[in-house]
């Protein structure tokens, strides 16, 4: 029921109030509008810093990338720093010098880090102060193998879709972080391709960060100390023939998570109260990240 004078009290609810609405919006916009002014930042000097990136895990040999930062106007990514002295030392004091691999463009050592151990990285390069960092390889979550079932439900078009289930046994009383990357084996190209299936898990949907290589990173904030079951829906088509999936389930160190979280914040940065955010770095006298993870790989046929 419409009251005779309701449009006077609720002018936005009637067409008659259109002019009033426009005027109010204009005034509000006028009051709060932001103005941009060109700033001269030419006096901010370029600081070339050494950049070290070392994401190590318990399955692969050590690879450390060493480069440097460049001018903010430069559109070309700087290449690796050659001739650097790069060493890695485990917590027992065993020190190994890394050698530069021209193909991977990284410094490599023929060792595979061990879960539960701590490693120190030291880099000396001409023109830069000595840089260092330390990282720990966390223990694996000890999960049971992932599973896939076909035709568990139907999509909105009526086609059957499968469910891929990943299990995580989270440890209680500690903050744990995970990264999941799911691959699908393409029988035609005989290659593993990253799959980005949607999850039905509301928790993971709300907090997971997507990484550049198609993985997701999340914390145990909503399932601390619990056995977590995460379901992903695989679309119709993946059930044909002999489908093969690879689930790479990584337990991340806190530094690893901080890096991805701050990178995600950096990419989304903006807003009234937000300062520009630097991406988290734990490199002493340099930039970049040194962090560890433990990998569990499940191949599902």
């Amino acid at each position: 029921m419409a009251y005779p004078f309701s449009h006077l009290f609720h002018p936005f609810s009637t067409d008659m109030s259109f002019n009033f609405k426009i005027i109010t919006l204009l005034i509000t916009g006028f009051l709060l509008q932001g103005c941009e002014t060109a700033l001269d930042i030419s006096n901010v000097t370029l600081r070339e810093r050494i950049v070290i990136n070392a994401l190590l895990n318990n399955k692969d040999q050590v690879q450390i990338s060493v480069s440097k930062s460049t001018s903010i106007d430069n559109k070309v990514k700087p290449g690796p720093l050659l001739g650097a002295e790069v060493t890695i030392t485990d917590d027992s004091g065993n020190k190994i010098t890394c050698t530069y691999n021209i193909i991977s463009e990284k410094y490599e050592a023929a060792i595979v880090p061990i879960a539960g151990k701590t490693y120190s990285i030291f880099v000396r390069a001409n023109g830069f102060p000595d840089a260092s960092a330390s990282l720990s390889i966390p223990n694996t979550a000890g999960t049971k193998s992932s599973m896939w079932k076909d035709s568990t439900s139907f999509d909105s078009s009526g086609f059957p879709q499968g469910t891929l289930t990943v299990y995580i046994s989270d440890k209680k009383y500690e903050n744990n972080y995970y990264r999941l990357t799911i691959y699908y084996y393409d029988n035609v190209t005989t290659e593993w391709n990253v799959l980005d299936p949607p999850t039905t898990d509301a928790d993971i949907q709300s907090q997971a960060l997507k990484t550049e290589d198609g993985g997701i990173v999340f914390s145990d904030r909503y399932f601390n100390g619990m056995n977590k079951e995460i379901n992903f829906l695989t679309a119709f088509g993946y059930g044909n023939g002999t489908p093969k999936f690879l689930v790479v389930n990584e337990s991340l160190g806190e530094e690893y998570y901080k890096f991805f979280k701050s990178l995600d914040d950096y990419k989304k940065s903006g807003g009234l109260f937000q300062e520009p955010n630097g991406v988290y770095s734990n490199i002493e006298h340099g930039l970049g990240i040194a962090a560890g993870s433990s990998i569990q790989r499940d191949t599902i046929h």
């Binding site: 901010v44 000097t45 994401l55 770095s281 930039l287």
Partner: peptide, 22 residues
């Protein structure tokens, strides 16, 4: 006082980002 980048660098995931460390 505000922070402006003094350079640009490549992160572990290949992103080319501003250096806001100052």
């Amino acid at each position: 006082a505000v922070s402006v980048p003094t350079g640009k660098y490549v992160t572990a995931d290949g992103s080319f980002i501003y250096d806001y460390s100052e």
